[in-house]
């Protein structure tokens, strides 16, 4: 049984100017335990709406989301969504350490090694040990996003949903964040559903890449990525398999954007 299963998801929302807007049309896919799976699609193809539905923050118009075989009705305990806008999702009145411990306080979790110790180890893993007492607005964008990721990981969720988390950091920082994410994924043995519009990033990170067409989104292509782990920013990206995946996905997306009217 897959860990997360999306069946015939459909969502329309009401817009004051444009009337009813179809954001998702009949979306189905599943995510297996321990998998790193990416969903690529052009910007504005309803990806954020989809993630909100998956995270139980938005009730879909139709269809179901099953987590561990249970239908998602509200925000589930073992699933956390990380937003692209780290600057808006971090609490400016809490220090880095306090931000990371937010989930623990809310869920009243305790760890056998002691919460303090757990958080300090996590800070070390994301390379923020020296910034525990700082406020998020004193940090760079890349560091802020690491705080947001660490905050989600602190609760030890089974599955992490990520909405273009590296969309607004510069290229160099992006490579670093990708590698630290892969490291964390293995270290914490969790499942990650990663949404991005960057094809290279999706291939580089994932075991499996789903490609969605233009809005209204549906899966038009699925590719299993067999590239060896641990991956390397230079070697993996120049591997023939990587290039082939990229070419195929790019062609796919181009065909679909030509077919549907803008």
């Amino acid at each position: 049984m897959p860990l997360l299963e999306v069946r015939n998801l459909r969502h329309t929302y009401r817009d004051a100017k444009r009337g009813d807007v179809l954001a998702i049309r009949d979306l189905s896919f599943s995510v297996n335990q321990g998998e790193f799976i990416s969903l690529v699609g052009p910007s504005g193809c309803g990806k954020t709406t989809m993630l909100m539905c998956l995270a139980g923050l938005l009730r879909p118009s139709q269809g179901v989301v099953l987590l561990d075989g249970q239908a998602v009705a509200g925000p589930p305990d073992n699933l956390i969504l990380v937003f692209q806008e780290y600057n808006k999702s971090l609490m400016p009145w809490r220090t880095v350490l306090q931000n990371i411990s937010f989930g623990l306080e809310i869920k009243k979790l305790t760890f056998p090694e002691g919460n303090r110790h757990h958080l300090e180890r996590l800070l070390k893993v994301v390379g923020l040990s020296d910034f525990a007492g700082r406020y998020p607005w004193e940090l760079s964008g890349g560091m802020q996003q690491r705080v947001a990721i660490a905050r989600a990981l602190a609760c030890k969720p089974e599955i992490l949903l990520m909405d273009e988390p590296f969309g607004s950091v510069d290229a160099q920082m992006r490579f670093e964040l990708e590698d630290s994410l892969l490291m964390l994924w293995q270290e914490f043995a969790i499942t990650i559903l990663f949404v991005t519009h960057d094809i290279d990033e999706a291939i580089y990170l994932s075991d499996r890449v789903l490609v969605s067409g233009r809005r209204p989104s549906e899966i038009v292509e699925e590719r299993a990525v067999g590239l060896r782990r641990p991956r390397d920013q230079v070697r993996t990206r120049s591997h023939p398999e990587f290039v082939e995946h990229r070419t195929r996905i790019y062609e796919m997306m181009r065909t679909f954007s030509e077919q549907s009217p803008a």
């Binding site: 995270a55 923050l57 925000p75 305990d77 937003f83 808006k88 999702s89 937010f102 809310i106 869920k107």
Partner: peptide, 13 residues
């Protein structure tokens, strides 16, 4: 910001 509220909710608030 809605993102802040959503974040707190996805963290179980």
């Amino acid at each position: 910001d809605a993102v802040l509220v959503h974040t707190a909710r996805t963290l179980g608030a």
